[in-house]
């Protein structure tokens, strides 16, 4: 029967053919173009690392990357906090309708982000938007607030939308991590007189650390590529005052609005490096604390 082992190649062949064309080639070509100046029409001009020199002094690149990191932090930290709190509530108490609550919290994650962007635009934009109506009628605000003229508010709203779309998912994943924790560990801790908070900090958190690392890294990779919501929430240029211009929006604008393909590729490579550094950094930082991670 051993002579059949080479059939494995036939089974994985279609995957690697398509991967080579639609996955690998675009990546390699992006790296290749990053050392050229090219508008898509004229011949490519090799300019070495000039694109990267420009990148290092490009204030829009720093602005966009700063925005992206800020939006990510302000949605990821509340997301983890909410997920830990909800997971504890659901795991340690008998909550009626737990599955219903959890399913409802996850719903926003399934909805097209482009629709979500437009939806929140409609809810907040203008003097007579639903949110202004509620705030004015209930007396919280004296007069309508121009939400999308405030950079702080708009950036915060993107963080909120991202939180809203992802806290249910994060809760499901954290809960799955918690249920794998052996119940006898809690019982032992309780019988030793540990408080709930102590058990949580000393037992639950260290044991779900692999789950938390997984969530952090996948969230960095996704969060640093943020595009759909900020691109559809306001005017697609990241306004007001470029406060929600993200790095991926900047790549899109450089490539497909200004036709600086070479430079857009250099920005992509730069963002790629940032994602790699952040992922490795957070992986190391989280692994070190507590030494519970062993595999």
């Amino acid at each position: 029967m051993k002579n059949r082992q080479h059939y494995g190649y036939f089974f994985i062949l279609p995957y690697f053919l398509i991967f080579a064309v639609f996955g690998l080639f675009p990546i390699l070509y992006t790296f290749f173009l990053s050392v050229y100046k090219w508008d898509g029409m004229m011949p490519k001009v090799f300019i070495g690392f000039d694109n990267f020199k420009r990148l290092l002094t490009d204030k829009y690149f720093y602005l966009a990357t700063g925005n992206t990191i800020k939006i990510w932090l302000f949605n990821f930290i509340p997301q983890i906090a909410a997920a830990l709190l909800l997971s504890c509530i659901f795991t340690f108490n008998r909550i009626r309708g737990m599955k219903f609550f959890r399913a409802a919290y996850y719903l926003p994650n399934l909805i097209t982000a482009a629709s979500v962007g437009l939806l929140f635009n409609l809810l907040f934009n203008g003097d007579k938007s639903a949110v202004n109506y509620i705030l004015v009628q209930s007396g919280i605000l004296k007069e309508p607030f121009a939400f999308f003229s405030s950079p702080e508010f708009t950036s915060g709203l993107v963080s909120y939308i991202q939180w809203w779309m992802w806290f249910g998912y994060t809760t499901v994943i954290v809960m799955a991590g918690m249920t794998t924790v052996d119940n006898s560990l809690y019982e032992a801790a309780m019988s030793d007189g540990a408080t709930k908070m102590q058990t949580f900090r000393k037992i639950t958190v260290p044991l779900i650390k692999p789950t938390l690392i997984y969530l952090t890294i996948t969230s960095i990779i996704g969060g640093m590529q943020l595009f759909d919501v900020p691109a559809t929430l306001t005017n697609a240029n990241g306004d007001p005052q470029k406060s929600i211009l993200t790095t991926t929006m900047y790549i899109y604008n450089q490539g497909f609005k200004s036709y600086n393909y070479g430079y857009a590729c250099a920005v992509s490579v730069g963002l790629f490096a940032i994602i790699a550094v952040l992922s490795v950094f957070s992986f190391r930082a989280m692994r070190r604390r507590g030494d519970m991670y062993d595999e």
Partner: peptide, 30 residues
């Protein structure tokens, strides 16, 4: 199946899962 290069190829699959897809949009477009 057991075949030569399986580990390396599977590693490639795992890596491609971690590589942010939107970063190669210019290459994808071209």
């Amino acid at each position: 199946y057991r075949f030569k290069g399986k580990k390396g190829l599977y590693w490639l699959v795992l890596c491609s899962m971690m590589i942010p897809a939107q970063l190669s949009i210019v290459g994808f477009y071209q």
